[in-house]
Amino acid sequence: MGWSVDDVRAWMRVPQATDDKYARGVVGFVTGSDAYPGAAVLGVEAAHRAGAGMVRYVGPRRAADHVLARRPETVAGTGRVQAWALGSGTDASHRSPSLRATLHAALAEGVPGVLDAGALDLVRVGAGPRLLTPHAGELRTLLAALGVDVERAAIAADPERWAREAATRTGATVLLKGARTVVTDGDRVAVVEAPTHWLATAGTGDVLAGIAGALLAAHADAVLADAACLVDLGATAAWLHGEAGARASLGGPLVALEVAEHVAGVVRTVLADAQSVSDPASTR
């Protein structure tokens, strides 16, 4: 099934008068590395722009310094979270004992988690609903670890088949990134067509993981009650990401940070459209 603005609007949580930052959702990040500190910045920026009530960051000093310089409202260090975003900007083959312990501790909490890049191999560690966000190459590596030999080109040619395969074998929801993003739990499938192919540039996947993390935190209770809604939340994240990319591009090149910066504006437009529908007088 395709994904529309009405589907997205259904998963936009608007703050109420009684809400505090915890009610809006706290998302934690274990992302970035000394080699790729920017991944942490991009994911954290996107989560703030997507409406997270609070963002926590746990990672190496170099990445943390960049995160706090860009977004000083971020809380550095562990603490209460409703969802985790893990792995962006890290490499499983160069995972330090310290990072391994941090990732395993996060996964043991049982809260919803977005597993990206260097955390995809940890899908069976700990407990809790999981949204995996690989591109075709990463999905090939994941499937190979599960005993399935398939070429990247074959995955790109039939993304729905191989995303379903990975979801069935892992028990997680898989968001397979691409020009045609497929989100599936092995049963339901949602498809999001990218409005611009300029999104095929470094760092945009980190932005997507941040948006997804914020959405999972905002709807953590719903995810814990029924993990099937991860398909909806993953598709919503992909749609917001695509629309933010289109705004950043305007038909030309973009950079990932610009995509993150446009997320709040996309959310604002989605909610404003809802207001104009519910209050016809506002359009007169």
Results as ranks from 00 to 15, higher is better:
A220P: 01
W239S: 08
A227I: 15
L233A: 12
A235H: 00
A246I: 12
A260T: 01
E243Q: 02
A272H: 10
E258V: 09
S249A: 15
D226R: 06
C229F: 12
P253F: 13
A248M: 13
D221K: 02
H219S: 03
V223A: 14
A225M: 12
G245A: 05
L257W: 13
A217V: 00
L250R: 11
A272C: 09
V259I: 06
A235S: 06
A235G: 07
A264V: 02
V263M: 15
D221Q: 11
G242W: 07
V255Y: 13
L216A: 05
A237K: 03
T269Q: 04
A227N: 10
C229W: 03
A272T: 12
A220T: 05
V223N: 05
A256W: 09
I211M: 08
V231Q: 02
V263H: 12
A217P: 09
A246F: 15
G234H: 08
E243F: 14
A235W: 00
H241W: 07
R268Q: 13
L216Y: 09
A218W: 06
V270A: 11
A264N: 11
T269W: 10
G210Y: 09
A248G: 10
P253N: 05
S249M: 03
A237L: 06
A217R: 00
E243P: 13
A256F: 06
V270W: 10
G210H: 02
A272V: 15
G245E: 12
G252N: 10
G265R: 02
A225C: 01
E258W: 06
V266T: 11
A246N: 07
G252M: 15
G210C: 10
D273M: 00
V270N: 01
S249I: 07
A225K: 07
G265M: 12
V231W: 09
W239D: 05
L224F: 15
A220E: 07
D273A: 05
G213F: 04
G245C: 05
L230R: 09
C229L: 12
A264G: 03
A227T: 15
A220C: 00
E243I: 12
L257H: 15
A264M: 01
A217C: 05
H262I: 10
V270R: 06
H241K: 04
D226I: 15
A248L: 08
A225Q: 01
D273Y: 08
D273K: 02
A227S: 14
G210K: 02
V266G: 08
R268N: 14
L240I: 05
A225N: 00
L257R: 05
A227F: 08
A260D: 03
D273T: 08
G265F: 11
G265N: 11
D273W: 09
A222V: 04
E243D: 15
W239F: 09
T236Q: 01
